[in-house]
Structure formats: structure tokens, C-alpha cells
Simulated assay, not measured.
Amino acid sequence: MSLTRIKPSNVILTVLFAVLSVFFLLPLFWMLSASAKTERDVWTFPIQWIPKEWNLIANFKAVWMGDVSFGLFYMNSIKIAVISTLATILISSMAGYALSKLEFKGRAFVFSLMLAFMMIPEQATLVPRYIMIKEAGLYDTHAALILMGIFSSYFSFLLRQFMASIHDDMLEAAELDGAGFFRVFWNIMLPLSKPILATVGIIKFIWTWNDYQGPLIMLTSTKLFTIPLGMQFFQEEFGTRIAVMMMASVAAIIPLLALFLALQKQVIQGIAIGGVKG
């Protein structure tokens, strides 16, 4: 049994990518380190990656127990991101199922129209959406942000492409057993689409969590602000206290890291399946 021959080029590329990954992760490492330091140690050079004097608890209290309502901004972001993500997954998956598996008049036209909408920049529709939200009486509410983000032609396209690759035999067998439209969609299509649904969920959650433009335009009440807008208050309150700002930044990325770690298996599986089928 012969050993697999290792190509020198593969070794060089592996080492090169490993070195590059370290450089990309350096800002994250510095942020984690600075969040546990005193202000004096943050500004020391060369950088002390392990804090000489730990100030983790004081920085934590300044973020979560200070005058700025960071906890309120945090909960607002979680509320909007979770509802928007779940609603987007449901609506986009229904659209993807209809465009991939259901036969109806004008399906090709609807699909072409959806592709055309994908070419329109989001900023081009900002004023019409603002007017619609204003006229509907939803301005300065979380409902405005949720409604603006749950309809996505991009995610509908992704789900349509994935569902189109699922064989019709299973759907036809379920229909012969008496399964209706909703049961086929809920019990067959959605379980088979878990990898792409996880991918859509992560992308949508990250986009919503980091969205600055939408809350900036649609919200005026401080109590409704999300994390991106809430960080402005921290900059005004703790602009010169870098350690506290880094602690707030660490807290802001925790839900994103937790979501990715929880669903990374499905995401990698979805990418692998898409690569094979594509």
C-alpha cells in the first residue's frame, strides 16, 4: 500500500493560508485582549496580548451596568434579528418551493421578474419603502425594520435553485399517499433543505444584526435603537475608553459566533452539496 505523495505546492499553499489566517484574526485577538485590560495597558507598545493587569469585571460593569442602556439595545437587536430571520426563511422557502416544484401559469415570468429585482440596489428603493412605512403608520417601530427585511428575492432565488435539485419522485410518492400541498412542503421539502436553510439563516441574521442604514432611517426613539446605533452612544460616552468599547464590541459579536458554531455543520454541508450539484 503506497503512501499518498504530498505535492510541495500544496504544502506551500497550506502554510501561506495559515499565515494569512493569523493576520486576519489579529484584530479579533487584539479586541479580545483589549476588552480585559486597563486603559493604560491598551496603549502600551509593543502590544501585550495577555493583559498584565486584568480589568475584565470593571469593563463588563461599565458596559452592562452603566448609564447607557446596552442591554436594551442588545435585546432590540435580538428581537428584530430573530423575527426577521425566521420570517425570511419561511417566506423565501415558500417562494422557492412554488417556483421550483409547482406548475402554474406565469411561473417563468415571475422567476424572471425576481431575477430583475435582484439587480436593483437596495438604496434605490429606500425612499419608496420609507414613504410606505410612513403612510402605514409604522415609522419609529420595530415592525418597520422587520417588514422591510423579510422579503428577499436573493434568498428566494437561493432556495429555488436548491429545491429544484431535489428529485420529484419523493414528492409524487407523498402526493399518492394523500399528502396535501402544505404537508409536502413542511414534512418533505423543508427537512431536505436544512443545509441551505441554515446558510440562509446565518446570512440573514448577520445582515440584520449589523444593519445600520435601516435603523438609522426608520428609528428615532432611543429605546428602540439596535446595537449599531447603540454603539454611537458608547462612542459618545466612552469614546476615549478603548477597553470599554472593545468589551461592548465583544458582546456584540457573541450571538453571531454562537449562531455560526451551532449551524456550521449544516452550512458546510450546504456549500458541499451546492458545489457537487452546481
Rank of each mutant, 00 (worst) to 15 (best):
P46E: 00
V68A: 06
V63C: 10
M65W: 15
V63N: 11
A62W: 05
G66L: 03
I47T: 09
I50E: 07
M65K: 13
N55L: 04
W54G: 08
M75I: 15
F73P: 00
W64Y: 14
W49A: 00
W49P: 00
G71M: 12
A58F: 04
Q48A: 10
R40K: 11
N55I: 05
Y74P: 06
D67C: 04
D41Q: 01
K61P: 05
I57S: 10
V42R: 03
E53R: 13
D41E: 04
P51A: 05
D41V: 00
P51C: 05
I57M: 13
I57Y: 14
F73C: 02
I57E: 10
D41M: 00
M65R: 14
P46K: 01
S69N: 10
Y74Q: 07
W43A: 03
D67S: 13
I57T: 15
N59H: 04
I47F: 08
R40T: 13
D41P: 00
L72Y: 12
Y74I: 08
V68P: 01
K52C: 03
D67G: 08
F60R: 12
R40V: 12
W43D: 00
I50S: 08
R40P: 02
V68Q: 04
E53V: 13
E53I: 09
W43N: 02
P51R: 09
Y74G: 05
W64C: 09
M65E: 12
N59S: 04
R40E: 08
F73Q: 02
T44D: 09
P51N: 07
A62G: 04
A62C: 06
G66D: 04
A58L: 05
K61W: 08
Q48K: 14
E39V: 02
D41F: 00
T44I: 14
